[in-house]
Design a protein around this nucleic acid. Structure first.
Length: 303
DNA sequence: AAAATCTCCAACCGCTTCTGT
DNA sequence: CACAGAAGCGGTTGGAGATTT
């Protein structure tokens, strides 16, 4: 009896974990509406939710924030941005996410890790003697890593504002609302600029993404040719393997059209992208043990 | 149709950085 | 300057749904 009461008392104080209910979201949204995305821990201290401030913040940033792209795959452009910026910044997901409106660090992180798994599996199963003994892989996704690129028609940077902002009565209120950290975006030159979701895209600072040089647009090559290319640092930089962000320096090369057209402020059409193989395409051509031959370059911190 | 396997992603944890006192 | 609490970040995990056998 006594212990049960004790347990009940304890349970009341217990911090809730796991999936969020719609009611909890409501409460959180109301709180943000009223106070802005801050004072997360006060949500619990006020007894509004039995969630930690940390959990509330995460929920807001990853799911409830306006203008997030829910349930749409990374477009080819976005993939390239991630690949390029990962090569440049390393696993700085939050930083990379600031270049991808509507994407969170979690999105980028998840995208990258599934990509890595995919590539690892491909390398493992694409013909090494050892792997040929292992049980056959039958996942059809394995063969054409990037086969879905041309069909990716996510409304990139489309304004889902209408539906999202329905959380709020007054758009102006949103505009004036203190914005989450993503708003403050460090520019490549070290300065800061506002990356407000409510600003026209053309005002969003965007790094000049490298342009793909013609000889790196991937034509069918023999494995020997590909291996020969491993001596080319440019070639390696394009690969941008997860484990070797140090390879970096992609920005100094030309890797393709920028994601944004600086004139129109729009994203380059998917049609353009289909004309360029993405770096991922490379992996289809590689011998599976190729990466055994690559030695990571020293990391920038060691320079 | 059922079981096995794979993929995606929401959410947690631990650590680091920032900010206020 | 030192400390504490809050916020932010990156790594990891586990479950749900999709796909394959």
């Amino acid at each position: 009896m006594h212990s049960i009461r004790k347990m009940e008392g304890f349970k009341k104080e217990e911090i809730r974990k796991g999936p969020w209910k719609a009611e909890e979201d409501e409460v959180l949204i109301k709180h943000v509406k009223k106070y802005g995305p801050r004072d997360w821990s006060s949500i619990r201290s006020k007894g509004l939710l039995q969630r930690t401030g940390k959990s509330c913040r995460l929920r807001w940033v990853n799911k409830l924030r306006p203008n997030l792209k829910h349930g749409c795959k990374f477009s080819a452009e976005e993939e390239r941005v991630v690949i390029d910026l990962q090569a440049e910044f390393g696993n700085k997901w939050a930083r990379i996410a600031t270049y991808l409106p509507g994407r969170t660090d979690n999105d980028v992180k998840n995208f990258w890790s599934s990509r890595q798994k995919r590539l690892a599996r491909i390398l493992q199963t694409s013909g090494t003697p050892s792997s040929s003994n292992s049980k056959p892989q039958k996942n059809k996704n394995e063969v054409p890593v990037f086969q879905d690129v041309p069909t990716l028609e996510a409304p990139v940077f489309s304004s889902s504002m209408e539906e999202e902002s329905s959380y709020f009565d007054n758009p102006e209120q949103i505009r004036m609302m203190p914005l989450p950290s993503l708003v403050k975006t460090e520019l490549p030159d070290g300065g800061y600029a506002n990356l407000s979701q409510y600003e026209p895209l053309s005002t969003i600072p965007f790094p000049q993404l490298p342009q793909l040089q013609p000889d790196l647009l991937f034509s069918p090559e023999s494995h020997d040719q590909l291996l020969a290319r491993l001596d080319d640092p440019y070639f390696l930089s394009v690969l941008g393997t997860a484990d070797t962000p140090e390879l970096g320096g992609a920005a100094q090369f030309s890797l393709g059209p920028p994601l944004f057209d600086p004139v129109s402020g729009c994203v380059n059409s998917a049609a353009d992208v289909t004309n360029h193989a993405t770096p991922d395409t490379l992996f289809d051509e590689f011998p599976s043990d190729m990466f055994d031959l690559i030695e990571p370059l020293p990391s920038p911190s060691d320079w």
